[in-house]
Structure formats: structure tokens, C-alpha cells
Computed example of a mutant assay.
Amino acid sequence: MKFYTNPFRLKPPYQGVEPMTCADAAAAAPFKEGDTVLLKSGGPLMTVVYPASCGGEVQCYWFNASTLETESFPAACLMDGRNCPNPF
């Protein structure tokens, strides 16, 4: 049996790039613990509890009336909420 290699095989796009550790990803995260954020699509102001790590998710807390809510969002879906005139 003869094995052939694929001459059209492309190099992975990450070849030659140093892998990023979880600590590096957390340091480069756009949001830090305690930051106020807002979904780009709107909604209530939220507080960052756990910044993005390897998964890229940011865990946030906010109040819905008197109920504490929590959810994780991709960092790309959030924006800085400090200068938001009307978050709702």
C-alpha cells in the first residue's frame, strides 16, 4: 500500500506564533474585575465579576429589580459602560 501526501495542504495560520497562556489572555482582556459594562445591543449596566480568560467569556452580575442575575458573555459583545448616558 502506498501513501500519498497532499501537496495542497496549507500551513496552519498560527504556525510560528507563540501560544498565549491563560494568564496572558487575562492580562490582555479589555475588561477587569469591577468594571461597569453594557451589552452592545443594549440592556442594564453590569459589573464584571470574572474577566475573560482562555474561553473569552466575561462573567457579569446585574440586578433585575431586586433579583441578582449573572451570565457570561463574549468580550466582543460588551462595551465600556462608564460613559453611557442611558443604559436601558
Results as ranks from 00 to 15, higher is better:
T36Q: 13
G55A: 07
E18Q: 15
E33I: 05
T36S: 08
Y61Q: 12
A27W: 06
C60E: 04
G56T: 01
A25Y: 02
K11T: 13
E57C: 04
T47D: 09
C54A: 14
L10R: 15
A27I: 05
V17D: 14
T5W: 01
E57W: 05
C22I: 08
D35F: 06
M20F: 14
T5K: 05
E57M: 15
A27S: 10
R9N: 09
N6F: 06
C60A: 11
S53R: 13
G43V: 02
V58N: 01
L45A: 12
K11C: 12
V17N: 12
T47Y: 02
D24W: 00
V58T: 09
M20S: 13
K32D: 14
A26K: 07
D35S: 07
D24R: 11
P13R: 06
P13K: 09
L38S: 00
V17H: 15
G34F: 06
T21V: 08
A25R: 11
Y14C: 10
S41L: 08
S53P: 01
P30E: 10
G42K: 02
R9C: 14
T36R: 15
T21E: 03
T47H: 01
W62Q: 09
V37K: 03
A52K: 00
A26M: 10
C22N: 13
T36W: 10
